[in-house]
């Protein structure tokens, strides 16, 4: 089967994000960039399915030349080829979903796997827009129930199982209060949650091999997609600073603060 996966370039989740004093964006200086962790899980899941069922994994990223770093990372993990949608400038989720729709129509994959959200915008929308526009079924937040380390987990069936006839995929979804299982006709869109799998490393041989794997370049105009953003960020600011710790007089006040101020219970 042919699986299309995404590889968005995002700020390293370990790096400190600071807002520019004028509120027009974040301070880019000194930041490192990585493949969106949820997308990395999507790449891994694609590779596992292909290892089992045969076929190929095509990875797509949208951005300037710098996204080659993320495409190469996915290729080094084992993806077979890459599609680079060369676009610089602002892009919203409708633009992304519109571009991906065209890439899907061109590549004709049996399955599209995306991260459930990117850790910069945190919108959690693109997979769903894409599924609707393609007229496909969707299974968001594909996940597993337990800790990776537990014995139970090691013996567990994978969260994504392709039907014997290669026409369906059964997906375990992490939802409020439990796990929902759905079955989608293929082709379908799946988005990944954090606990679906643990992505493999890009090995050194993989990195060297990735050098010679193809990266196909596409441009939005060529795909006939209008990417004018419909969503604009007008201002960014830092969250309110953490309040200095306080002593509370009694249990009632503590519970009240935890509920209304810290919002943790």
């Amino acid at each position: 089967m042919k699986i299309l996966v995404t590889a968005k370039r995002v700020e390293d989740p370990e790096s400190k994000i600071k807002v520019k004093p004028d509120g027009t964006g974040i301070v880019q200086e000194g930041l490192k960039y990585k493949i969106n962790p949820f997308d990395e899980i999507a790449v891994e899941e694609g590779l596992r399915l292909v290892a089992k069922h045969g076929g190929e994994v095509v990875v797509v990223s949208i951005g300037g030349k710098e996204v080659h770093e993320q495409l190469r990372h996915a290729l080094a993990m084992g993806a077979h080829k890459a599609v680079w949608v060369n676009h610089t400038g602002p892009l919203d989720q409708m633009g992304v979903a519109g571009l991906l729709q065209k890439v899907v129509e061109k590549e004709k994959p049996d399955l599209v796997i995306l991260g459930k959200q990117s850790i910069d915008d945190d919108q959690n929308q693109v997979g769903q827009y894409l599924a609707e526009w393609l007229g496909w079924g969707q299974a968001t937040f594909a996940s597993k129930a337990e800790s990776f380390d537990s014995e139970n987990e090691k013996n567990k069936v994978p969260a994504l199982v392709v039907g014997a006839d290669n026409k369906t995929v059964r997906v375990v979804r992490e939802v409020d209060g439990g796990l929902a299982t759905v079955e989608c006709q293929l082709p379908a869109v799946v988005t990944t949650d954090l606990r679906l799998n643990q992505p493999r490393y890009a090995s050194l041989p993989g990195i060297m091999k990735a050098k010679s794997k193809p990266i196909e370049e596409l441009i939005p105009a060529g795909l006939g997609v209008d990417v004018t953003p419909k969503l604009t960020v007008t201002k960014m600011s830092a969250p309110p600073a953490r309040k200095a710790g306080i002593k509370v007089p009694d249990v009632a006040t503590l519970v009240e603060k935890l509920k209304t101020e810290a919002k943790v219970i």
């Binding site: 080659h68 770093e69 190469r72 990372h73 080094a76 890009a202 050194l204 990195i207 050098k211």
Partner: peptide, 15 residues
Amino acid sequence: TDEQRALQETARKYA
């Protein structure tokens, strides 16, 4: 180079 950054990243993650 891109490859050097990639192998540094893999070695760092492994470490």
